[in-house]
Amino acid sequence: MPSPSRIRDRAAGAIMGAFIGDALGLGPHWYYDLAELRRDYGDWIDGYTDPRPGRYHDGLKAGQLSQAGIILELLLSSLVECNGYQEADFCRRMDEQLFPLLDGTPFKGPGGYTSQSIRDAWRKRVQQGRPWGKTGGHADTTEAIERTLAIAVRYALQPARLADAVAANTVLTQVDNTLVSMTVAFGAVTGLLVQGHSLDTGLSDKLMGLVKSGELPFHSVTGKRLQPPRPGEPEPSPAGRFASPDALLTPSYMAAAAADPGIRIEPAWKVSLVYGMPCAIYHQLPAAYYLAARFHNDFEAAVLHAVNGGGQNQARAILTGTLAGAQTGLAGIPQRFIEGLEHADELLRLAHRLATQL
């Protein structure tokens, strides 16, 4: 395992990578017509941009955060001040600092746009008076990942606590079991990258090892390398919370595709066309894993190809920025991305404080 200072650098890199990805996507967010995207922003987006009038996030400025980044900062602040995940504290912050600014419609609230899962939670919590824990909906998007990545970084060295806390926070807004399993899997991947492991063809074997040891709550009856179980061999007991470990296998398949000379996605931003431009988690994760594996030592290339692919490029860039930043560390993130980020000093302070708590 790398030195403690290197782990802290990777942890801070993952957090700042997420904020950078969010801000990079602010201007060119949700262009599904790539010709329109190129007309408005040129052939290659290489930094922070203002949203165009009448588009998503209209009125915000280059380098600012969307609501996804704002909620990530809320959870990050809670983690830092509580020295770990305290659900009641995070929920209090949502009640006091976010929900009073919303009205249940998409274009109301900080960050210029409120996603479906947060609108659903607002309606259940504010209009219907439900307690937290009864506020989750069925959005199949990545909003939970976009905030729980901070939990994954905080518990990068404690996989079992990581899985429990990520799952608990996810179901506050999204309750589909498959989505929760994919969100926990992303967190587990992030944790291993912060530890110093590589996003390569061997990473999924390491994740499956954590399943076999009982540290990750996925159900599996196959052997370490997916060999069939021996006749008469009992199933694991207790059974894992999630019916299948397949979400843990995706990262290494994407890494294999990125490394295979017979599989070329050129230019790499076209990963959005291969895996899909929409918002759903099953479009977003393969693309983010692919880009982070292909550009494992080049943060700039990873996040810019994520943004230039159009569609739900903001989520793609947040996820890719997390994984890329966890691999390069904060030291590997170009300074211009830090300098152009609004309130960068405060975000860096929080990232460093979280990193020291590992």
Rank of each mutant, 00 (worst) to 15 (best):
222 T>K: 13
4 P>N: 05
29 H>G: 08
91 C>D: 07
148 T>A: 01
152 A>I: 10
320 T>F: 01
106 P>D: 14
81 E>P: 10
350 L>R: 09
297 N>C: 11
188 A>L: 08
157 L>C: 06
352 H>C: 10
169 N>G: 02
27 G>S: 12
175 V>K: 01
88 A>F: 06
341 L>I: 04
296 H>G: 15
267 P>G: 10
186 F>W: 09
172 L>D: 07
54 G>M: 07
69 G>Y: 00
34 L>F: 10
187 G>M: 09
132 W>S: 02
124 K>Q: 14
66 S>I: 07
61 K>D: 13
293 A>L: 04
355 A>P: 04
242 F>M: 07
274 V>L: 13
251 P>Q: 04
34 L>A: 12
286 P>L: 06
309 G>C: 06
122 W>C: 02
158 Q>F: 00
6 R>A: 15
68 A>F: 00
148 T>S: 03
287 A>C: 07
91 C>H: 04
28 P>R: 08
249 L>C: 12
264 R>H: 14
233 E>Q: 15
182 M>S: 13
30 W>A: 11
98 L>T: 05
150 A>H: 01
233 E>N: 11
245 P>N: 00
88 A>S: 13
172 L>Q: 14
24 L>D: 05
186 F>H: 13
328 T>A: 05
33 D>A: 06
72 L>G: 01
42 G>P: 03
348 L>I: 13
328 T>N: 07
150 A>L: 04
191 G>D: 09
9 D>V: 10
166 V>W: 01
339 E>T: 15
176 D>V: 05
358 L>T: 11
310 G>W: 03
294 R>Q: 15
56 Y>F: 14
307 V>H: 07
326 A>Y: 00
109 G>L: 05
266 E>M: 10
237 S>A: 10
348 L>A: 05
115 S>H: 12
337 F>A: 08
33 D>G: 06
108 K>G: 01
259 A>T: 13
64 Q>R: 08
72 L>E: 02
203 L>Q: 02
174 Q>F: 00
224 K>F: 04
292 A>D: 07
39 R>M: 09
180 V>R: 05
345 D>Y: 09
346 E>K: 15
275 Y>M: 09
123 R>G: 00
135 T>G: 04
228 P>Y: 04
208 M>Y: 14
297 N>T: 15
142 T>D: 03
57 H>E: 09
335 Q>M: 08
126 V>H: 13
97 Q>A: 08
33 D>P: 11
144 A>G: 05
160 A>Y: 02
64 Q>E: 15
17 G>D: 08
114 T>S: 10
78 S>R: 04
49 T>C: 12
147 R>I: 00
76 L>T: 02
257 A>S: 11
303 V>D: 01
186 F>V: 11
302 A>P: 05
104 G>Q: 13
222 T>A: 03
326 A>G: 04
322 T>K: 03
58 D>F: 03
207 L>H: 03
206 K>W: 01
134 K>H: 15
21 G>H: 05
105 T>M: 06
48 Y>Q: 02
33 D>H: 12
69 G>H: 02
249 L>A: 11
